[in-house]
């Protein structure tokens, strides 16, 4: 198992390398002149050239890349020209907020999604199933920004229970994580349901019943354990959507997190911040997929030796 994890971690290195190249080239790929953006609209041609030199943009690509990536390894993520601070300083207060929000969203959506899916599968074709799938359809169909606004309308404006935005205390996290997790909850409910229905019809479930196991154990120890393989796979795949969701939801709820920072930076063409954020989100995605793969291998003995 240790060997598998090590192999899996090592396989992240080439991937990160490729991602870093793409992120680096990004500054050259998007339209507009980065040096002019930094220098400002009123700058003279000479000033723009000076900025270009200062940023190292006049050098060939490869030395530029090496300089950039070395900086990142030393914790130098670049400089935000809009805010006149380092990117690291911008990240420091925002990173924990986004991570906390992500963890909250994943936790509730996975738990509730699984519960709805299992209950629906056990009660297939009956009222509870219909109700569960109705919730799932709603969760998939409602866009998270709209859901966020509706939640705000109901709980903040009408009932006055929760804040409309900002993060004074933990209550500020409730509505954003509800809005962010709804889609994942819905997809997981559907995946869990169909996977459970499939597994409950399998021969080994019949064997488990024939052994005399109580139904609760048949469902949890056999059917659900096998379904968790599918559930982990789908959850890992949904992380991308969750990151994208954080960008929208943080904006809707005016939460000072990394997603909001991304939107603002794109607005100001603050290249180095955008680069650092994309690199961070890719890294986050990879780490979560790594965790999913390890869990997957822990549960499913058939993948360990491949």
């Amino acid at each position: 198992m240790g060997k598998y994890i090590l192999k899996r971690v090592l396989s992240m290195i080439p991937l990160l390398f490729v991602v870093s190249i793409l992120v680096f080239l990004f500054i050259h790929l998007i339209p507009g002149d980065a040096a002019r953006q930094v220098a400002g609209a009123t700058a003279t041609a000479g000033e723009v050239e000076a900025v270009r030199k200062q940023l190292g943009l006049d050098q060939p690509l490869i030395p530029q890349y090496i300089q950039w990536i070395t900086g990142i390894f030393h914790g130098d993520l670049g400089i935000s020209y809009t805010n006149n601070t380092t990117v690291a300083e911008l990240f420091a207060p925002r990173l924990p907020i986004t991570i906390y929000l992500t963890i909250c969203s994943i936790t509730w959506s996975v738990l509730i999604g699984i519960v709805i899916g299992v209950v629906a599968a056990i009660n297939r074709g009956r009222t509870l199933d219909m109700l569960g799938m109705l919730i799932a359809i709603a969760g998939i169909s409602l866009p998270n920004f709209w859901l966020g606004l509706q939640l705000m309308q109901i709980f903040s404006v009408n009932l006055g229970l929760l804040p409309t935005g900002g993060l004074e205390d933990w209550r500020g996290y409730i509505l954003p994580s509800l809005a962010m997790g709804a889609g994942i909850m819905a997809i997981l409910a559907r995946v869990t349901r169909s996977s459970m229905i499939e597994n409950l019809g399998k021969d080994y479930v019949r064997t488990a019943r024939a052994k005399g196991l109580p139904e609760s154990r048949v469902i949890m120890a056999h059917a659900f354990k096998n379904s968790s393989i599918d559930i982990i796979t789908v959850t890992a795949l949904q992380i991308g959507a969750l990151i994208a969701g954080s960008v929208v939801v943080e904006t809707v709820f005016s939460i000072p997190g990394l997603g909001r920072l991304l939107v603002d930076s794109i607005g100001f063409r603050d290249y180095e911040v955008i680069q650092a954020l994309i690199l961070f989100f890719s890294f986050e995605y990879m780490v979560i997929n790594l965790i999913a793969d390890v869990l997957y291998a822990l549960i499913n003995p058939r993948v360990r030796y491949e």
């Binding site: 399998k202 021969d203 080994y204 019949r206 024939a210 354990k225 499913n300 058939r302």
Partner: peptide, 14 residues
Amino acid sequence: SMIFQEPMSALDPI
């Protein structure tokens, strides 16, 4: 007790 037709699928794979 009972035993079944497909021994490979009658045992829990994981």
